[in-house]
Design a protein around this nucleic acid. Structure first.
Length: 333
DNA sequence: CATCCACGGGAATCAGCGGTAG
DNA sequence: CTACCGCTGATTCCCGTGGATG
C-alpha cells in the first residue's frame, strides 16, 4: 500500500509545487539580492497553520541554493529551539564552529561573537513559529549580522508584534510580508492526489475519498496529509486493498489530533497526571492543582519542578495558564 | 505596611552515559 | 574488563520579585 512513507508526512518538501506561485515569486524576489552577494531583507510569512508557509519557505530556499553556488541555510523551529542560546547554537552548527562549545560553560554572548566573526557565504535562516521564541532579542542579534537573511514564519502576527520591543518593530516593519490563505477544497484535493501518486501504490484511492479528506481538513494541508497517512496505515493493518470511505472516516479523528497526540505521548507520567487533573477540573488554581497532584502520585516531585512542567506544557499548548502571581489559574486548552 | 502566594532565574546536586586509562 | 572521569539533563534548593490581601 505505502510505497514511500516520507512523502506522506506534511514536512516533506516536494520537487514541484502546484499552488502558491505568487507567494513563491514574492519570496524569491526578496531573496534575490543574495544572488549578487548582498544580503536580503527579512521576510515575514503569515497565515493559518497548514497553509503552506513552511513548505514554501523551504522550497524557495532550496531552489535558491541550486541557483547560487554557495549559500548556507538553516531551518529552525522555534517551538523546539526557543531559547536564544539554542537558536545561536543551531546556526553555529551549520557553519561548523561548534566543536569546542560546551553547552554548560559557554556563555550565550560568546556564541554571538562567533557568529559575528562569520565571513562565509550568505546565510539564509528560516525561523518557523517565531512567536514561540522566549527571547525576541535573538531576532535583533540576527538582524545585525550582515550575511544573515531571515525568513520569519508565524500564524499569529499580532502575538509576534506585541512581544517585540520598539527597536525591533521598527526594523521589521518594512520587511516583506507574504500572507497565506487556507487552501481551497480543490487545491487540497490536488495536493493529496500528488502525495498519493508519489507515496502510495497506484489506484488505491479515488477522488471521492480525496474530497472527503479535504473537506475534513478544512483548508489545512497538514491535517489533510495526516489523515491520508493514517488512512493508508489503517488500510495496511486491516489488509484492505483500497482506501475506502470507511477507512477514511476512521482516520479522520486521529489525523486531526495528530500533532497534539504526539506531544501528549511525549509527556512523562508526572506530567501526564498534571495534564489529566487540569482536564478533569476544567479550571483550577496552582495550590489545588499541586495538592491534587500530590494525592495522585507516589513520589511527588517538588513544587518547583511541577512549575517547570506546567510552563513546558503551556509552551506546547496542552494547557492554558492565565493571570499573574496570585491570580494564576490553569485550564485545559 | 506586613504577610501571603506564586513565579521563574540561578546554583548546587544527582544520576545516567560514554569514553578511556590502566 | 573494570574503574574512573567528564559531560549532560533533570531535579531540587534558595531566593528576589511583585501583585493581592488584610
Amino acid at each position: 500500500m505505502i510505497r514511500d512513507a516520507r512523502v506522506l508526512h506534511a514536512q516533506f518538501v516536494p520537487d514541484e509545487l502546484e499552488h502558491r506561485n505568487a507567494e513563491i515569486n514574492t519570496l524569491s524576489n526578496t531573496l534575490k539580492p543574495i544572488m549578487d552577494g548582498h544580503s536580503g531583507n527579512p521576510s515575514l510569512l503569515l497565515g493559518p497553520s497548514g497553509a503552506g508557509k513552511t513548505c514554501i519557505a523551504r522550497f524557495t530556499v532550496e531552489r535558491l541554493r541550486e541557483n547560487v553556488l554557495d549559500i548556507n541555510t538553516q531551518y529552525i523551529n522555534c517551538w523546539q529551539d526557543y531559547a536564544r542560546f539554542q537558536v545561536l547554537y543551531r546556526l553555529l552548527e551549520t557553519i561548523g564552529t561548534t566543536v569546542d562549545i560546551h553547552r554548560r560553560s559557554t556563555p550565550t554572548d560568546e556564541l554571538l561573537d562567533r557568529l559575528r566573526q562569520y565571513d562565509g557565504p550568505p546565510f539564509v535562516v528560516i525561523l518557523d513559529e517565531v512567536d514561540q521564541l522566549e527571547d525576541n532579542g535573538v531576532l535583533y542579534d540576527l538582524y545585525q549580522l550582515p550575511q544573515i537573511t531571515m525568513i520569519l514564519i508565524t500564524n499569529r502576527e499580532r502575538d509576534l508584534f506585541t512581544q517585540l520591543d520598539d527597536r525591533l518593530t521598527s526594523r521589521l516593519h518594512p520587511s516583506v510580508r507574504i500572507s497565506f490563505e487556507k487552501y481551497h477544497l480543490d487545491e487540497l484535493v490536488s495536493i493529496l492526489a500528488a502525495r498519493a501518486r508519489w507515496g502510495l501504490v497506484d489506484d488505491v484511492i479515488e477522488s471521492a475519498e480525496f474530497e472527503l479528506i479535504a473537506d475534513a481538513a478544512a483548508g489545512d494541508a497538514r491535517i489533510a496529509i495526516g489523515i491520508l497517512r493514517h488512512a493508508a496505515r489503517l488500510a495496511e493493518q486491516t489488509d484492505t486493498q483500497r482506501i475506502t470511505t470507511d477507512v477514511v472516516q476512521q482516520a479522520i479523528p486521529e489525523g486531526r489530533q495528530d500533532v497534539r497526540q504526539k506531544t501528549i505521548e511525549q509527556l512523562t507520567t508526572h506530567q501526564r497526571v498534571l495534564y489529566d487533573i487540569v482536564h478533569e477540573h476544567g479550571e483550577l488554581d496552582p495550590s489545588t492543582l499541586y495538592a491534587a497532584y500530590r494525592d495522585r502520585v507516589d513520589e511527588p516531585k517538588t513544587n518547583r519542578t511541577v512549575r517547570n512542567y506546567l510552563a513546558k506544557m503551556e509552551h506546547y499548548r496542552l494547557i492554558h495558564a492565565e493571570g499573574d502571581n496570585r491570580a494564576r489559574t490553569y485550564r485545559p486548552r
